[in-house]
Each structure stands twice: as C-alpha cells, then as structure tokens.
Design a protein around this nucleic acid. Structure first.
Lengths: 111, 111
DNA sequence: CTTGTAAATAGCCATTTGGTTATATACCTT
DNA sequence: AAGGTATATAACCAAATGGCTATTTACAAG
C-alpha cells in the first residue's frame, strides 16, 4: 500500500490528522499552534505532519525558527475525485438498470 | 482510531478494497466474483470484506450458498461529505482574505 | 559563543494490519 | 446421509502505525 491515493486516504484515516487538515483549511499554522488542541507530545505531532506531507496533503514553509504548514488543497481535491469516480460508476449502472426496466415494461420514472 | 469516519477512510486506504468498492459500484457480486481480479487467498478477500462491512461501506446478502455483497452508497457519500466540509472551510477563509484585501486596497479579482 | 525556543530525529514499545495455511460452517445436490 | 462448493474463522507471522522519552538540529537574541 504505497500509491499516492492510498497514502492520502491512510493519512486522513486518523482523527488527529483530519483535525490538523481542518485547521489548516482555515489558514497556515506552525507546529506549536497545530499541537495545542491535542493531548499528545510534540514529536507525535511532527510524525503526523510528516505523514500528511509524505501524502502530499500539506507543505512546509520557512519563517525564523518556525516551519508553518499549509494545506495543499489540490491534493485534497484529487482524493475527493476518487469518490466522484465511484459515484459515476454507480449512477452509470443505475442508468443501465433503468433502461433495462424500461424495455421490460415501462412504468415508473426514477428520480 | 475507531469512529466511523476513520474506519471508512482506513478501509478505503487499501487499493484492493478500493477496487472491490469500484466493482460493487457497478452492481452486487459474490465473494468469488470479487476475488477473481486479485492474486490473494480467499480468506484474505473475506478479511477485506469484513473491514469494509465493519466500516458500513458494504452489506451482505443471502442467496443459496453465496453471500452477495452490495455497496452502501450512502455510507460512501457520508465519507465524501468530509471533503466537502474542508472545502468549505477553505473557501470561507479565502473569502475572508479577499474581503481583507478589498479593505486594504481593492486591486485584483481572484480566480 | 551561550542560552532559549521551535521543530526534527532516534530508539523503544504495544497494537494493528494484511497476508498465509488449515479448518470449520452452511447450504445445495445427489 | 455424503459430497461439493462458497464462505468464514482460527492461528500464526512480518511489517507498519501511533505513541512515548531523550536527544539533536536550526535559528535568534543576548
């Protein structure tokens, strides 16, 4: 399991990391700022950030001794795109089912 | 890590399981059918299916000696909703930034 | 050049994960 | 009831994950 999409979904499977992403969606933040809401150690946060960075979901800045992180919204969209893809497979096969039912006996109009 | 959303994302972090979901998006299928594309053992597939079921992403039917699985599309939508939520956080803060720039000195129209 | 603060890395540990083979269960067919 | 086919469960294993404490690195300020 190491394609980018898997890395992204795995990264987002952790509630702490999702909270970090949600925080960064509102603007960039330093490691210490990101740490505040959580009862875990600083190294643990750094590890989470590395996971998110490896997945390409965030990137690192440089400012004095702090390294502000920011969200890579495009990477998040790429992840969301997978869901769209499945959704369209689903509705395609639904369409085919509708067509089939139409042929067998046209009665109701599906939503 | 055991809230439902985390379970769902973790379930989808595996390529085999995503392929299974994609397959099920096109219609229900038995375990043997689902197994075909993969070079792994039947118990391994059953394990994957259990992960997906625990996450609420699929459900199990009953038909003779086969237990067809089908996609729970609503569960998938719930998962996709998280991405929507982050997207809106992101655009909200973008709006605020725009407003700020407007106040400071109105010059360019953002994409 | 020492001190302070922010963050990263190393080393450790328990738990989880994804795979395996072997075995059990469930249901149809004969 | 005996056999066959579909699936589930058990028991095991190696690797990955998420946490910790201790230590190191990077930079700014005295």
């Amino acid at each position: 399991m190491d394609d980018l999409l898997s890395l992204k979904l795995a990264a987002l499977a952790d509630p702490t990391r999702r909270a970090i992403i949600a925080r960064l969606a509102q603007g960039e933040a330093t490691v210490s700022e990101l740490r505040k809401p959580f009862p875990i150690s600083q190294p643990a946060i750094s590890k989470h950030l590395k996971v998110l960075e490896t997945a390409g979901l965030i990137e690192r800045g440089q400012a004095a001794q702090s390294r502000p992180r920011r969200l890579r919204i495009d990477a998040l969209e790429e992840t969301a795109a997978w869901f769209e893809q499945v959704r369209s497979l689903w509705s395609d096969s639904f369409d085919r089912l509708d067509a089939l039912l139409d042929t067998a006996g046209p009665q109701q109009g599906e939503q």
